[in-house]
Computed example of a mutant assay.
Amino acid sequence: MLDPRGPRFAAMITSVVLVVVLITGSGWLALAQAVVFAAGAASIRYAPYSWIYRKFVARHLGPPPAEREPSEPVRFAQGVGFAFMAVAAAGYLAGAPLVGLIATAGALTAAFLNAAFGLCLGCEMYLLLQRVRARFSTN
């Protein structure tokens, strides 16, 4: 179970990184963010931004709220972010900056919504897929 402030913190850092990717068109920075997303999809505990949150930020915020979030939707969202940024990095590095720009803008939209409003699109997609799977598995 996760402190819900952690994913929002990570989304803030991600938003800043993605704005820099959009401004610079850096395929290498897009690839670095894809690696960060891959780490988060594998394990939130070892994701770089989650580590920064736990090590340096959480202790200054006081105890986490009583309501914690399950990690599975967040890990799924990280996987979706990885897919977007892998496409972005490939686009930028292969000389197709429009592909990189569109994929980065999609990832930035999701990260910003999470950072600013606590709306995790990847988490919502995970929950929707779970409901669809449950509906079809009972029939």
Rank of each mutant, 00 (worst) to 15 (best):
T24H: 03
T24V: 01
G25K: 01
S26G: 03
W28G: 07
L29A: 06
A30P: 08
A30F: 07
A30W: 06
L31K: 07
L31I: 06
A32T: 09
Q33V: 05
A34E: 01
V36W: 10
A38H: 10
A38L: 15
A39V: 12
A39S: 12
A39L: 15
A41I: 07
A42P: 11
A42M: 11
Y46V: 13
Y46K: 13
A47E: 15
Y49A: 13
S50D: 15
W51R: 14
W51K: 13
Y53F: 15
R54E: 10
K55R: 15
K55C: 12
H60P: 04
G62Y: 09
P63V: 10
P63R: 14
A66E: 12
A66P: 05
A66M: 07
R68H: 04
P70H: 00
S71L: 02
E72C: 00
P73A: 07
V74L: 02
V74F: 03
R75I: 01
R75W: 03
F76L: 02
F76S: 01
A77Y: 04
A77N: 03
Q78R: 00
G79R: 02
V80M: 06
G81H: 04
G81Q: 04
G81K: 02
G81A: 05
G81V: 05
A83F: 02
A83E: 01
A83R: 00
A88K: 03
A88L: 03
A89P: 07
G91P: 07
G91Q: 06
G91W: 08
Y92F: 15
Y92R: 08
A94R: 14
A94K: 11
G95V: 10
P97Q: 02
P97D: 01
V99H: 10
L101P: 02
T104K: 06
A105T: 11
A105F: 12
G106P: 10
A107V: 00
L108F: 13
A110D: 00
A110V: 03
A110N: 09
A111N: 01
F112N: 04
F112P: 04
F112G: 06
L113D: 09
L113H: 13
N114L: 15
N114W: 09
N114I: 02
A115N: 11
A115D: 01
A116I: 07
A116K: 11
A116W: 13
F117S: 13
F117Y: 15
G118S: 12
G118E: 11
G118Q: 11
C120S: 14
L121C: 09
L121K: 09
G122I: 08
G122M: 08
G122N: 09
C123D: 13
C123T: 10
C123K: 08
E124Q: 10
